[in-house]
Design a binder for these strands. Structure first.
Lengths: 120, 120
DNA sequence: TCGAACCCTCACATTGATGTGAGGGTCAAC
DNA sequence: GTTGACCCTCACATCAATGTGAGGGTTCGA
């Protein structure tokens, strides 16, 4: 699959896909003519990257933890260095915090909407 | 309270607090000498702003929705214009999506850590 | 009255994630 | 063989959120 199709299927612009590659988040093969070539799993990969980015993780961290998260869920122990684990733990608690904060605020908004709706 | 204390109590740099003010996210009174002066509730306000920012909302949206979210939980109906409600609904679903995405990824990380830990 | 520790504004720098455009190949169809 | 839809690299632009520093007041205690 070339970049155009990947872009369409993931919703990420071509530019962005090149950026992700530059950042080491995805890999692309090259055709004889220089065109990037992607395989099927890359679609999921991109979606996951976008999810993590959206979660507020910077590319540099995503790049680190991505190898642990790919499906099929093979556990890659070779990545499980102590630093890696520490990073994951840090991100894990950061994400949990973010989730609860996000949830709190979402609920507050929902509650507000509820109140406003009832009152109309 | 002056900016230094607010900074310490919220963890936001002085610079950042001035920025938030510039963006209309917080308000500051002024002492006779020109120093900014904050009241107690501003502490919570700043924390909430940081939460929302961290949740991925841009300052421009936060500024819009903040009036609806302040405690004490008075519902300000005057803000409940149709556009406001639409904005809130959009953000609400965006946040929900983000929450589930974040949760998925967090769980994946947790699972991985679990597996690695057990194996040691 | 001096210095430390505050505060102010202004303004330029940076980082991360993107957009956009220039200049230029590739390829398939017509 | 030309056109249109792709692709490439390079590089500059932008936006939000910050940092940083210059240049300069204010307050307060020793």
């Amino acid at each position: 699959m070339r970049i155009g199709e990947l872009s369409e299927r993931t919703g990420a612009s071509r530019r962005l896909l090149r950026y992700y590659e530059e950042q080491g988040l995805i890999v692309a093969g090259r055709c004889a003519n220089g065109y990037r070539s992607y395989d099927e799993p890359t679609v999921d990969r991109v979606l996951q990257v976008r999810g993590l980015l959206d979660a507020g993780l910077p590319t540099r961290i995503i790049k680190q933890i991505l190898p642990c998260l790919d499906k099929p869920r093979t556990i890659h122990f070779e990545h499980a260095t102590p630093e890696m684990i520490a990073t994951l733990e840090r991100e894990l608690s950061g994400m949990s915090e973010r989730i609860s904060c996000l949830t709190r605020n979402r609920d507050a908004i929902a509650e507000y909407l509820e109140a406003v709706r009832v009152d109309r």
